[in-house]
Nucleic acid binder design. Structure first.
Length: 912
RNA sequence: GGGCAAUUAGCUCAGUUGGUUAGAGCACUACCUUGACAUGGUAGGGGUCACUGGUUCGAGUCCAGUAUUGCCCACCA
């Protein structure tokens, strides 16, 4: 084995090997209980970021563990066509050529996007391979591929036929830069330092003169958006507001336009805010739109789709950008004497989540999905426990959203996306025919009109495309072949776990629930595992603009993919967001180095044993040539078995972090720090049988440890699996069985008992105590003479004496004696006793310092004892606490009493 | 405004139905160029578990309130 582990070469080698050998591929016919997961498809324009790394590490740990546990495991990968994002990317590229998408025309533009996709769309899936994802690439899907598109069309048509899809006039969020409608949740609200303009609207009062006369009265309207003024069709006051009661039924003059508009009363108006009088612009504000509906007001759309004003805004503003127009209108209002004053106002302004442009409210015709009927069964599925959120608290947030669900605006004015399968008779938008294909629509049109002479040329398709999420919400079944009836669908649907971050619960998870239940009659997954967002060391969201993003690919370059994965698993918790810092990835790298060196150590010794085979000792049974196992051997085997069971239990509960910690601790502390050090005595000794036996034990335990670690660190474990010869026949560790418990018979014959386990635990404490002494007195190992362990009886003494050599190794002391109670009496008085360890007093110990230290310990022990005694003296405790806890306290009391007596004697020895 | 969380060592976080003297990693201190590994080993210092009450024999853990922080949703024209 090489001295240094070359992560880069190893990771590239094994990933290619796995893919070549079809290790990730799953088929329904492979046997086993199905375990399937669909990946949250990243945007095809995306590049791998830390969020993906975390999300996919969690999934791959679960997937690899299940696969090793014998499940028929499918992890299905793919990408999302990401309507706006992708269209923007290509439009930007076009801009460099001095062209706009309109210059190309729709078909050529879409073809251009496909071309871009073919060329660059593979970026993220190649980056995902570097993470080590065991996704079945043979099944890679794209939300805009043929199958998914078919599913989308069918779903749209079905929902339309059921009356759940409708087209309506509605105020939508509109991004002027992207030129499309946005769903409510695609709008991000951000604080804005704006202004509040106070404007006088003259009141038309028949008693005081007709319109056009000099005005006596006016109402004061406060607005943040003066540019929408030409679209006003009323001003509103609260019906309970006495201040303005006299205005009701009157009209006011809309400044600059001279138009007369009514004063109306509506509960929507807040008496306390502003002046208590609101201008109503139904075409440009969602609330005003609703007010307008209630009062049957005209809707005057004064703006174009690109954010410029149109002719309805008035000739002098037509063509002006909305923000320019704001300035112009304010200036004109001032000039006309209508502007009263301006105040500063902090409010929230919506921005497009894709391009960050200020979003406009705009009246337009859009397609919607009625969500309430879809939401109800999806709520029920979580309520009944059929689908579970992990952690559970997310179900509350899910219910909250689902219970207040709004209809979903699904049309987008883009070119890149699934075109809405709705057709109109040319020039007549009222004659709608919804069908999966143009031909089918034509048939419907013929039947409806009775005109058999109609041809495709008489139909035009709706120009809009569907929201990207309209394909993503079908992902768990469209990727398995729906609407065809396929074996894949039969076998792998519903999927088992869905792992995602909290930020797309509404966008995606909730909608998948609805689609899955509606079209498949079964929820699309059993467990929804929600993890936190990755943040930087200061707790800020990682973003390009802040420049605080860590690039997973750079981290892989610097530390290896295994290190990235393991460190992420170790520091992440499902319960909160994860803060990452570059330094944290050293944990994973160092752990890899540790394992690599442990393997080298074993191999070095194995070379000295002719014919030794790691593989022969890797199974569930230990191949022991001869000789008894020592207590330390048994302890290690037992611990290994316990850790495997522990990790299984933890992963079943999605406690990825605790599982990582358990295997880390076992390999580093138990295996390397204790067992390999202990084994050195035998490995460097004369007894060849014992050497072989030690290696056999290590070979067995290490094989299990590698398998337990494999879900977290797939590459180095695979490399070592082969380096050690476990996978000599070309078998991957990926498909090696998850470590099982030892057979009861074997446990019995090898003496794997709790008693032995506890004995070694105590022995470790002894050794630690010895090391502490040495450290406290700053004694070099060679000088540490007369290190004496005192035990109560001869049997224990014999047991420890049998290990004396290994104890010496662990303590690095040349002189070690084990004495019994009887022998103790003969010991020289120059030895002082601390606990069960004896230490030579003369020449080594600073008596005053030691006295002070012992005094400290004594006080501490007395304090503890006081606490324990108080507990035991409490009748309530003895009566109500579990018997085991009471017993524990009694034992503690006895132990402390003994310790205190010893310490008192020791203290006297020092102070005498 | 509504909702959901969080607050434990200098930092990042564990702490699983309330029960020994609250743990880990990093950082820090001392010693160790020991034969797998200095990306290492050994030992150690460091916490009145945000605050105030309550329930209990017993509270980091349960309840109420306060403070601070974060996130989500909805928003005032």
């Amino acid at each position: 084995m090489d001295k240094h582990y070359d992560a880069k070469a190893v990771e590239e080698k094994w990933y290619a090997w796995w893919e070549q050998h079809g290790c990730f591929h799953a088929e329904p016919g492979d046997g086993g209980v199905p375990y399937s997961v669909v990946i949250p498809p990243p945007n095809v324009t995306g590049i791998l970021h830390m969020g993906h790394a975390l999300n996919q590490t969690i999934q791959d740990v679960l997937v690899r563990w299940r696969r090793m546990s014998g499940f028929n495991t499918l992890w299905l990968p793919g990408t999302d066509h990401a309507g706006i994002a992708t269209q923007n990317v290509v439009e930007k590229a076009l801009k460099k050529e001095g062209k706009r998408r309109q210059d190309l025309g729709r078909e050529a533009f879409v073809e251009r996007v496909w071309e871009w996709k073919r060329q660059y769309g593979g970026t993220i899936v190649h980056q995902q391979r570097k993470l080590g994802n065991s996704t079945d690439w043979q099944r890679e899907r794209f939300t805009f591929d043929e199958g998914c598109s078919k599913a989308v069309a069918k779903v749209f048509c079905n929902l339309y036929d059921e009356g759940l899809v409708y087209k309506g006039n509605y105020i939508v969020n509109w991004c002027p830069r992207c030129g499309t409608a946005l769903a409510n949740d695609e709008v991000e609200h951000e604080p804005n330092h704006g202004h509040f303009w106070y404007i006088r609207y003259p009141v038309v009062d028949s008693d005081k003169g007709a319109a056009g006369e000099p005005y006596q009265d006016y109402v004061m309207v406060a607005t943040t958006r003066p540019e929408t003024l030409p679209g006003d069709t009323a001003v509103a006051v609260n019906p309970k507001d006495e201040r303005y009661a006299h205005l009701l039924g009157k009209t006011v003059i809309l400044p600059l336009t001279g138009r007369e508009i009514p004063v109306i009363a509506d509960d929507y108006v807040d008496r306390e805010f502003g002046t208590g009088i609101v201008k109503i612009t139904p075409a440009h504000d969602p609330n005003d739109f609703l007010v307008g509906k209630r009062h049957d007001l005209a809707e005057i759309n004064i703006m174009n789709g690109d954010g410029t004003m149109n002719e309805l805004a008035g000739a002098e503003y037509c063509g002006m950008d909305r923000f320019k127009c704001r300035e112009a209108i304010v200036a004109d209002l001032e000039a006309g004497g209508y502007l009263d004053h301006i105040e500063d106002l902090d409010n929230q302004v919506g921005h497009c989540y894709r391009c960050h442009e200020v979003v406009e409210s705009r009246l337009s015709k859009q397609w919607f999905v009625k969500m309430k009927p879809l939401a109800e069964p999806a709520i029920e599925a979580v309520k009944s426990g059929e689908v579970r959120f992990v952690p559970d608290r997310w179900s509350k947030i899910y219910f909250n959203w689902m219970n207040n669900i709004q209809d979903w605006c699904i049309s987008r004015q883009l070119w890149w996306g699934h075109r809405i399968p709705a057709y109109y008779l040319r020039g007549n938008e009222e004659s709608v025919f919804v069908a999966e294909t143009a031909e089918a629509a034509l048939e419907k049109a013929k039947n409806a009109t009775g005109d058999a002479a109609l041809t495709l040329a008489d139909l035009e398709q709706d120009p809009d495309v569907l929201d990207t999420w309209f394909s993503s919400w079908l992902w768990p079944f469209s990727t398995l072949g729906w609407p065809e009836k396929t074996d894949d669908l039969d076998f792998y649907y519903p999927t088992f776990d869905l792992v995602t971050a909290q930020d797309i619960i509404f966008f995606w998870v909730a909608r998948m629930m609805m689609a899955g239940i509606h079209f498949m009659k079964k929820p699309p997954f059993k467990n929804i595992v929600i993890h936190g967002i990755v943040r930087d060391a200061q707790g800020r969201k990682m973003s390009k603009s802040l420049g605080n993003s860590l690039d997973p690919l750079e981290l892989i370059e610097a530390y290896s993919a295994d290190a990235l994965r393991f460190s992420l698993a170790l520091i992440t918790s499902l319960d909160c967001d994860t803060k990452v810092d570059k330094e944290k990835f050293e944990i994973g790298r160092n752990f890899g180095t540790k394992i690599w060196n442990a393997a080298r150590f074993m191999q070095m010794h194995a070379e000295k044993v002719p014919g030794f085979s790691f593989a022969a000792n890797a199974g569930d049974r230990l191949v022991l040539n001869s000789g008894l196992l020592t207590a330390d051997d048994r302890h290690l085997l037992l611990k290994c078995e316990r850790v495997a069971a522990q990790i299984t239990a933890l992963l079943e509960k999605y406690r990825i972090q605790d599982g990582a910690l358990a295997i880390y601790d076992f390999i580093w502390t138990d295996f390397c720090d204790w067992y390999l050090e202990y084994a050195k005595t035998g490995l460097y000794g004369e007894d060849e049988t014992r050497r072989a036996q030690l290696l056999a034990i290590m070979a067995n335990v290490f094989s299990r440890a590698l398998r337990m670690l494999h879900p977290y660190m797939p590459f180095i474990t695979e490399e070592l699996w082969h380096q050690m010869g476990y996978g000599a026949d070309g078998e991957s560790i990926m498909t090696a069985p998850w470590p099982a418990a030892f057979a009861d018979g074997d446990k019995q014959s090898w003496g794997l008992t709790d008693t032995v386990f506890n004995y070694v635990e105590q022995k470790r404490e002894l050794v630690s105590a010895g090391r502490a002494l040495r450290s406290n007195y700053n004694v070099a190992p060679a000088k540490f003479a007369h290190f004496i362990i005192h035990v109560a009886d001869q049997a224990s003494a014999d047991l420890i004496n049998a290990d004396a050599e290994s104890l010496k190794t662990l303590l690095r002391s040349d002189r070690l004696d084990v004495v019994t109670e009887g022998e103790k009496k003969a010991m020289p008085s120059s030895l002082v006793r601390l606990g069960t360890i004896y230490l030579p007093l003369e020449g080594l110990v600073d008596v005053a310092a030691e006295a002070a230290r012992v005094k400290g310990e004594l006080d501490k022990a007395r304090g503890f004892l006081k606490g324990v005694e108080a507990k035991l003296g409490n009748a309530g405790f003895v009566a109500k606490a579990p018997a085991a806890v009471v017993e524990q306290q009694r034992a503690k009391q006895a132990e402390l009493t003994e310790t205190i007596a010893k310490l008192e004697k020791l203290y006297q020895a020092f102070t005498a």
